[in-house]
Amino acid sequence: MSIQTLEPRMADVGGIPIARLLPNTGKKPIGAWCFLDHAGPADFGEDELGMQVGRHPHTNLQTFSWMLNGEVLHKDSLGNEQVITKNQVNVMTAGTGLSQGISHTEQSVFPDTGGSSDAARAISMVQLWIALPTDQEIERGFHHYPELPTWTEDSVEMILTTGSYTNVSGQHFEAPTIQYSKLVGIDVYFTEDGEVTLTLEPSFEYGILVSEGEIESEGKVCKQDQLFRFHDSDVANNESIKLVAKKAHV
């Protein structure tokens, strides 16, 4: 088996373009990651409201929101209100069982509508859903993570959004993000054309979403809003994978 390149299904959600990579026809979830959307990138005029997602419910999963550009206000049925800004994560846990569940709204905010003074009139956000293990009794809740482990490898800026990770230099990083299944998530931003080697966890399934630019790995090219999907055993050296990029964001 080799690396697969998945194409997005395009949709409009809350008034903005969405590239949906998971679920994908004939493809299973990637570990506990069962849903993946890239919202935007989109720019908004002075008279536009931006993304406006009305109240909707979730059960037996977590929503994992990673902001690349712009700002979004989260409100939920537990009474939480939180603006998420660039390089921050929101995790909403719906809980497991018939007595749990949560509903929420998501709305773009700008300097004049509750955002920060320098909030962009734009959005680029990755949102994933994580399937919760149903053999655990998990309470609903909401967590906001304004600070995450950050480091640089040559011209590549890295942020660990969830899980633990040891890079090729032996540096170890732990994200504070709440988990109920073992997962890892890394934001990789190439500030210029270059390459980086990512270490792999044995027996893990992986997905690499390109939100900007394009990357090449194992002889294949992945462009914006496409997804590389693979198992650690699908790469030549199953302990790591090398990405060669043209000023990309993955």
Rank of each mutant, 00 (worst) to 15 (best):
V109A: 12
T134Q: 09
A122N: 01
K246E: 10
K247H: 07
H143D: 15
T161F: 05
S117P: 00
K247E: 06
I123P: 10
H104A: 08
P146A: 06
T197Y: 01
V221E: 10
P149N: 15
E137D: 13
G219E: 08
S124F: 00
Q224R: 11
A122E: 10
T162Q: 15
V221D: 04
L198I: 14
S203C: 04
G115P: 00
A119P: 01
G114P: 04
V188L: 10
H104W: 03
G163L: 07
K220V: 02
I138G: 12
T177M: 10
S240G: 06
F142C: 15
F228K: 04
A236S: 03
R229P: 00
E139Q: 13
I178K: 15
S240T: 10
E239I: 01
R229W: 05
F142A: 07
L160T: 10
T105A: 10
A175G: 08
P111L: 07
L227N: 12
V109G: 04
T166E: 01
I159E: 06
V221M: 13
V168I: 12
V235K: 01
E174I: 06
V196Y: 07
S203D: 09
P149T: 11
I138Y: 09
I159R: 15
D135P: 02
Q136N: 10
G185F: 02
W129M: 11
F190R: 13
T191R: 15
F173E: 12
I186G: 07
H249E: 06
E205P: 05
W129Y: 11
K182G: 02
F204A: 15
E201Y: 06
I159W: 04
P202M: 11
L160G: 05
Q179C: 10
Q179H: 11
M158C: 11
E147K: 15
I123H: 07
S117A: 14
V235N: 04
V184W: 07
T197H: 00
T197K: 01
V235H: 01
L243E: 03
E137M: 12
T199P: 00
Q179L: 07
T161E: 03
R229V: 03
V156G: 08
Y189A: 08
V184Q: 10
H144M: 02
T199A: 01
S203L: 08
Q107T: 11
E218K: 12
I186P: 04
W129P: 00
D187Y: 08
T197V: 06
V235I: 02
S155V: 09
K220I: 13
H249N: 08
F110V: 15
V168F: 09
G114Q: 06
S116G: 07
C222M: 14
L132H: 03
N167K: 00
E212Q: 12
T134Y: 03
I208V: 15
E218Q: 10
C222L: 11
H249Q: 03
K247C: 01
G213F: 14
S233L: 02
K220E: 04
D234T: 05
Y165R: 02
L132A: 03
V244Y: 08
I130G: 06
F204T: 13
H104Q: 11
D225Q: 14
K242R: 13
K220P: 02
N238H: 07
S181W: 13
H172E: 04
D234V: 03
K182D: 12
D193K: 14
H249D: 05
L209Q: 13
T162L: 11
A248C: 03
K182M: 12
E212T: 04
E205R: 05
V126P: 02
Y145P: 01
Y180Q: 14
K247Y: 03
P202Q: 14
Y165V: 02
V210A: 13
